[in-house]
């Protein structure tokens, strides 16, 4: 769910960046999109870690 939201957010920022005439606004929104991608990657990693730790057989 959060993953879909992250992808949606990244696309919205792209669209918004494309609409900007001012160089600095385009630069800002494009850079923010990268942070959203970073959020998405981190989210996947952390979610994977939660799953991995919950399935730790040594704790069964």
């Amino acid at each position: 769910m959060a993953e879909d939201t992250g992808i949606w957010l990244s696309k919205e920022l792209s669209k918004l960046a494309d609409k900007q005439k001012a160089y600095e606004n385009r630069a800002f929104l494009t850079a923010m999109k990268k942070v959203v991608e970073e959020q998405n990657d981190r989210m996947k990693l952390l979610q994977g870690e939660v799953d991995g730790r919950l399935w730790n057989h040594e704790q069964w």
Binding site: A2, T5, G6, W8, L9, E12, L13, L16, K19, Q20, K21, A22, N25, L29, M32, V36, Q39, R42, M43, L46, Q47, V50
Partner: peptide
């Protein structure tokens, strides 16, 4: 200062960004 947009669109983007940040922190 953003072009061709309205506040609702920007607010949704901002709120979603904040939500993602909070979800990460929760994880």
């Amino acid at each position: 200062t953003f072009d061709e947009t309205n506040c609702t669109e920007c607010e949704t983007i901002l709120n979603t960004f904040i939500q993602q940040k909070e979800d990460l922190s929760q994880l």
